[in-house]
Simulated scan of single mutants.
Amino acid sequence: MAEWITRTIETLGYLGIALLMFLENLFPPIPSELVMPLAGFTVSQGELSFVPTIAAGVIGTIVGAFPWYYLGKIVGEERIKAWLDRHGRWLTLSSKDLDQSKRWFQRHGKKAVFFCRLVPGVRTLISLPAGLSHMPLPQFVLYSTLGTLGWVMLLTFAGFMLGENYDRVEQYLAPITKLVLLGLVLTLILWIFKRQRDRRGKG
């Protein structure tokens, strides 16, 4: 994959960066942790300029967030509620739980979108609840852009400073990504366990 990413940037320049970051949001296995540091290294070689490189990365990311955002809107709350009422017992979830999560997102949605754009592993997923909760598109774009700008600048600058060792950025971030995902999984497991215990107590 690294060779394909390298060829894409070498061949298409800024358009290639935007395309890769767009695909990264649709297919998370394409790592921004490799794309933007490589772009930063290319900037250090004088083949690209810093600001247009950042802009390409941000634009590609935001455009790539739209499919997930609109998927949440199209699938719709009622369909998901109906599915949860039929099958959610296997996950100890119900339509009421969805209502609670929606209220939480309405209270914290702006911060959630902003900070999740800075977190490896969940950057893409935050677009789905934003669409499901019908977060206003201008707000979604604004806070996604601000969070993405910080992430893209960090990766690009790291690649610029590391030079030919730009690929170490992904190595450094990989343990962090695994810890974040592990934390999310454990949180979900604990939450499900707590709900099961509470329901047994009520029964």
Rank of each mutant, 00 (worst) to 15 (best):
S95K: 11
L132D: 06
G60A: 10
V58H: 04
K110M: 06
G163I: 10
V169G: 03
S95N: 10
K110P: 01
L71D: 05
N25M: 13
Q45F: 03
L26T: 10
Y70I: 03
K102I: 15
G201Q: 13
L137T: 07
F193Y: 12
I59E: 02
V152G: 02
E78R: 13
N165Q: 13
I74W: 15
I59G: 01
V122R: 06
D99E: 14
S144P: 03
G64Q: 08
R79I: 03
S144D: 03
P29N: 07
G72D: 08
P29S: 04
L98W: 12
A56L: 04
G64M: 07
T11Y: 09
D198H: 05
T53N: 09
G131R: 07
G13I: 00
K81V: 03
R117E: 12
D167M: 10
W90L: 08
P31R: 01
Y143V: 04
L93N: 03
R199H: 09
D198T: 07
L12E: 04
P136Y: 01
G163P: 13
K73C: 08
V122E: 08
T11A: 11
F22D: 03
L186Y: 02
R107D: 08
R86D: 13
V152C: 08
N25T: 06
Q106Y: 03
G46A: 07
I9L: 15
T61C: 13
H134Q: 09
L155C: 11
I189F: 15
D198V: 06
P37Y: 10
L84V: 07
A112K: 00
V180F: 14
W191C: 00
F193K: 13
F140A: 02
I30S: 04
F22Y: 11
D198R: 12
V58Y: 08
P52N: 05
P29W: 03
Y172M: 12
I80D: 06
F157W: 15
T92R: 13
K202M: 09
K102P: 00
T145K: 06
K96V: 11
L188S: 14
D198W: 00
F140Q: 02
W151Q: 02
K102C: 01
Q139I: 01
F115L: 14
S49F: 06
M161G: 00
V119G: 00
V35P: 04
T145Q: 07
L34V: 15
V43G: 05
L181M: 14
T11C: 02
I192W: 10
R89H: 14
A112R: 00
L162G: 01
S32F: 05
L186W: 01
S94E: 11
V180A: 14
R103L: 11
W83Q: 08
W4P: 00
R117W: 02
Q196E: 13
D99F: 01
V152I: 14
F115W: 14
M153G: 02
T6D: 13
R168T: 09
V169E: 06
A82Q: 14
S44I: 01
A130V: 09
K96C: 04
I9Q: 08
L146A: 13
T156N: 04
